[in-house]
Amino acid sequence: MELTFENNIPIYIQLLDYLKIYLISGVFKPGEKLPSVREFATTFKVNPNTMQKALSELENKNLIYTERTNGKYVTNNKELIEKLKDEYAVTLAKSYFQGMKRIGLGKAESIKYLEGIDE
């Protein structure tokens, strides 16, 4: 899992984004044990302190939790993950419509374009 980063956005925010996608898409499943900060940092080739910061943010949102001696786990609360997915989808949709608006296309027209695209 090699990630790429933009230098103009805080690295921990970009990491947080990648981690959210992993949770939403089930790369890490509810209740599953996560790699250690060190392992994560090595795999993603980031500074361990930055990795720690991204994981703390996830923990603040209750998406992961720490078992005192055992490490970090994905929440068992599937609803939280669903909610995350929903929020993420809304963000993607908004950015699509914003892009279309910039070239003068309204919502209805934009949806037509979506329907015209084969996956």
Partner: peptide, 8 residues
Amino acid sequence: SDTDELRE
């Protein structure tokens, strides 16, 4: 400065 804080 902290790097990410400065970027932000």
